[in-house]
């Protein structure tokens, strides 16, 4: 019994990393085509990760090692609760969305601990911005979660997916379009794409949280970002696009990611306090409007 769980756990984690890196590679290609470039092959991200793990790396103290590991582990632990299409790691848990929202912050907190211990002020500024931005996008996202919990009388992602079966018109995307729009903007913030990339700002604070990470630490950061892409697009795909078969699920994730990237390609960067203000006004009002329509 335990063995099967471990096996399923490994499958979920490896899938998330593999698919996340694939999305990243395809995303880079996509961005390059928007800019009329060609970019590298779609498997460029895998090469990058292998190279990063083959490099020497420098650690300043054990908290840095521990924090980076915790950041990675936090995201992996969240992926376990995400129903990947019909596949659930723990068939009994069925992806409680509240647990997922709770666990998602652990990744950021671990990263915050690790990079703050690296002692570079730019890293601290970057992670402070990331955490402040989280206060911004969590509110519209949490509101749309509340909406769906109301609508389904259940907090399980699995139930939300079940309720959208049948025609694609049953998808929550069409039932609750305003909430979907709000969550899509929140997704933009979660993935840290433009215009909400004040936390990495390469020219300004030298890539923020990653400033002092080298070699394998940056490799873990890369893997974490890959899993994060998989997780966050996965949550939105399950909540609003009706999950689906495994292949369908992956396709929906990829489409969501590409939408995010195409928004990112045309925007410049918000200052992070403006970004938080924006999150609290536009997407929050959109989701609230949907909530009012739903309750009325």
């Amino acid at each position: 019994m335990v063995k099967t769980y471990i096996f399923r756990f490994l499958i979920a984690v490896l899938t998330s990393i593999f698919m996340g890196l694939l999305y990243m590679g395809i995303g880079r290609k996509f961005m390059a085509r928007i800019r009329r470039c060609y970019a590298g092959p779609f498997y460029q991200s895998y090469i990058d990760v292998i190279k990063l793990f083959s490099k020497n790396s420098i650690s300043h103290n054990w908290i840095m090692d521990f924090g980076v590991m915790m950041g990675f582990a936090g995201i992996i632990a969240t992926v376990v609760f995400l129903p990947i299409g019909p596949f659930n790691v723990f068939p009994d848990m069925k992806g409680n969305i509240i647990i997922i929202m709770y666990f998602m912050t652990i990744g950021y907190l671990g990263m915050a601990m690790g990079v703050a211990a690296s002692g570079n002020p730019n890293a601290t500024i970057g992670i402070a911005r990331a955490l402040s931005l989280m206060i911004g996008y969590e509110i519209p996202f949490a509101l749309s979660v509340i909406l769906l919990i109301f609508a389904n009388r259940s907090s399980l992602l699995y139930d939300m997916v079940l309720s959208q079966h049948g025609s694609f018109l049953n998808w929550n995307m069409f039932r609750y379009p305003f909430a979907f729009a709000g969550s899509l903007i929140a997704l933009q913030g979660m993935l840290g794409e433009q215009p909400f990339d004040a936390m990495i700002a390469p020219a300004e604070i030298a890539s923020g949280p990653m400033v002092e990470l080298s070699g394998k630490f940056l490799g873990f950061g890369f893997l974490q970002h890959a899993s994060q892409i998989f997780l966050e697009t996965g949550i939105i795909a399950a909540m609003f696009l009706g999950g689906g078969t495994i292949l369908g699920f992956f396709t929906k994730q990829l489409i969501l990611y590409l939408i995010t990237l195409s928004i990112a390609a045309v925007f410049s960067r918000y200052r992070f306090e403006d970004a938080v203000k924006f999150f609290w006004i536009i997407p929050t009002l959109l989701v609230l409007l949907q909530l009012v329509i739903f309750l009325a």
Partner: peptide
């Protein structure tokens, strides 16, 4: 886009560590 260095997997990085 004119010469597109990213074809070779090269890209600019922000800090010496990376």
């Amino acid at each position: 886009s004119r010469w597109d260095m990213e074809r070779f997997g090269m890209g600019p990085m922000a800090t010496p560590r990376q």
